[in-house]
Simulated scan of single mutants.
Amino acid sequence: MVENRPWLTFISHLVLIIGLAIVVFPVWVAFVASTYDPKSMLSGVVPLTPGDQFFQNYYQIFVEGLSSAGAPPVGLMMVNSMVMAMAIAIGKIAISIISAFAIVYFKFPGRVLAFWTIFITLMLPVEVRILPTFEVTAGLGLLNSYSGLTLPLIASATATFLFRQFFMTIPEELSEAARIDGAGPLKFFRDILLPLSRTNMAGLFVILFIYGWNQYLWPLIVTTDESYYTIVMGIQRMVTVPDSEPLWHVIMATVLLAMIPPVLVVVFMQRLFIKGLVETEK
């Protein structure tokens, strides 16, 4: 039981407010910067109140793009990032839960070896195997395509391991009862395991969506067509403008727009996300 001490409550709330201010202040500065013209941002004094260029700046980047930096409209890049993030998150969860189901509930020779082979790939992230992965992708003709952006990143040893550990906590009596009732493997998987895994899938979806949304190295390598650029690539191209100063008002507006989808995913799936992280037993 927590004691009701007014001074302790005041200090706790004060610490929370200070922490919130530290987190929110840079976001507020970015928003203010996105509402001014380029001269105001390069004057050396950063204002703290919004300017009068909000609609012009956001219309320019969202619809027209920034041709001087080789960046297409932000709307197109956000669609590409959304397709990539959704495909990676859903694909990783689908493949991992099926793999874990096969490893735990099917008795076949070499299943332990299969699991450890999958698990060992944790030591070989995509950055390490970037060249062979690119060769395979190029050989299959997947460059400059959504398939090339997503398929090489879909397999996940981490998600497979987490689902395997969760399935191993489910009592064997449950699968035996389903077998006695005449439920086959697919029915047991669809009607029992999937509902029990709902919170785990939600927690993994949030993490994997943000992982896919923030991808930079692989999209940079596999795409040369502007119509497949992602939002993270667009921000980097805006920052590294040759022979001119970066247009920070446009960059800050793009950064704020890039924050919206991950924030919405976290907000709307927060309850299931937290529940999936803290639940250890069903």
Results as ranks from 00 to 15, higher is better:
A69F: 01
S156T: 08
F166L: 06
A178F: 06
L186F: 15
A102I: 13
G184Y: 13
A94V: 15
M78W: 05
L186G: 07
Q53R: 12
I88A: 01
I61L: 11
W116L: 12
E176L: 11
F62C: 10
S147L: 15
A157Q: 03
E135L: 15
S96K: 05
S68C: 00
A177C: 08
A157C: 05
G75H: 03
N57M: 01
P73S: 13
L149V: 05
G148E: 09
E176D: 15
F101R: 12
G70A: 07
L162N: 01
L113V: 12
P152Q: 08
L131Y: 13
F167T: 06
P132G: 07
R179F: 01
Q53C: 00
L174R: 01
L149C: 08
A102R: 02
L149W: 08
A155T: 14
F108C: 05
I118A: 10
L142S: 10
P50W: 00
S156I: 07
I180W: 08
E176W: 07
F62A: 14
L140Q: 02
N57H: 00
I120D: 06
I90V: 13
W116T: 05
G65D: 02
E176F: 10
V112D: 14
R164L: 14
F119R: 09
A183H: 10
R179I: 06
S67H: 13
S68R: 12
I118Q: 03
P171M: 14
M86H: 00
L162H: 02
F163Q: 08
E172G: 14
T169E: 04
F101N: 14
T133A: 15
T117C: 07
P171W: 09
A183D: 10
S156H: 01
L149T: 03
A94E: 10
P152M: 10
S81L: 05
